Amino acid sequence: MLSSPLPNPLRVLLAVVLLPLAAHAYFQVTSPSKGVQWANNQTYPISWSKGLFDGVDTFDLELSRLGTDGLVFVAKDVPSYTGTLNVALQNVPPADDYFLLFLNSTHGVMYGNSQQFSIAATGTNNASAPQPDGSKPTVTVSGGPNPTAVFATTFPPSSNGAFGWMAVSGTMAHVVALTSVATIGLMSGAWMVL
């Protein structure tokens, strides 16, 4: 029988302290959803939610297909806190095996991806598709995969990715995180002394 080196009360305390941090460690793409059909010469919203403490301030957005090699570079350095970005399609090859990739293209780290969706030819009208958010930026994507192309849009840095205490919602979460780190540090030090 294996036993933990930590006593039961200490394990419970660590679980309670670290649980709020684990709940914020995700990056989920909510739109486009599975089976949605987009059409050329239309604009569609992309939306996501992410963890507050995941350390992702910006990401790169790429359009990929299962059936062919290559990527369409959509946007670089998208501010992750915005939660929505509009994409206008122009002359993107129609297919039913597209995915959006949310990643750091410099380091090759993937944060998330959309579910499979399709892009139809010009003139196809899909009334069930979500409408773009006029208050969010729009990126225009044209053509198919091209390895020598650059990103359609590059967003400027937003204060070097640093946020003030009140700039991001969830200030209480910051306090909980800092308190958790300090508590774990003190407990680790006490454990070493014992």
Rank of each mutant, 00 (worst) to 15 (best):
M1F: 05
S4F: 00
S4Y: 05
N8F: 06
P9L: 01
V12G: 08
L14F: 04
A15G: 04
V16M: 03
V16I: 08
V17Y: 04
V17N: 05
L19F: 06
L21P: 02
A22N: 06
A23R: 02
A23F: 12
A23G: 00
H24T: 08
H24Y: 05
H24D: 09
A25Q: 05
Y26F: 07
Q28K: 14
Q28P: 03
V29T: 12
T30V: 05
T30R: 05
P32Q: 08
K34I: 11
G35N: 11
Q37P: 04
P45W: 13
P45I: 04
P45C: 04
I46M: 10
S47P: 04
S47L: 01
S47F: 07
W48H: 15
G55K: 03
T58F: 02
T58M: 04
T58I: 08
D60G: 15
D60S: 07
D60A: 15
D60H: 15
E62H: 00
L63G: 05
S64G: 03
R65L: 04
G67T: 04
D69G: 13
D69Y: 11
F73T: 07
V74H: 06
K76W: 11
K76T: 09
K76G: 03
S80R: 08
Y81R: 10
Y81Q: 14
T82G: 01
G83P: 08
T84C: 09
N86S: 13
V87W: 09
L89W: 06
Q90G: 06
V92C: 04
P93H: 02
P94L: 15
P94H: 08
A95M: 03
A95R: 09
D96H: 15
D96T: 10
D96N: 12
D97V: 03
D97C: 01
F102A: 14
H107N: 15
G108H: 01
M110T: 15
G112V: 00
N113K: 08
N113H: 11
Q116D: 12
F117R: 15
S118C: 05
S118Q: 09
I119W: 00
I119A: 11
I119N: 10
A120T: 12
A120V: 14
A121V: 06
N125H: 00
A127P: 06
A127D: 13
A127N: 09
P132E: 03
D133K: 15
T138F: 03
T138S: 13
V141Q: 01
G143R: 03
T148G: 01
T148E: 09
V150S: 10
F151N: 02
T153F: 03
T153Y: 08
T154L: 00
F155A: 14
P156Q: 12
P157Y: 12
S158W: 07
S158D: 10
G161W: 01
A162Y: 02
G164T: 08
M166K: 10
A167E: 13
V168L: 13
V168A: 15
A173Y: 07
H174T: 06
V175Y: 13
V175G: 10
A177N: 12
S180M: 14
S180P: 06
V181G: 07
A182C: 10
T183G: 10
G185V: 12
L186Q: 09
L186N: 11
S188W: 13
A190P: 08
W191Q: 07
M192Q: 05
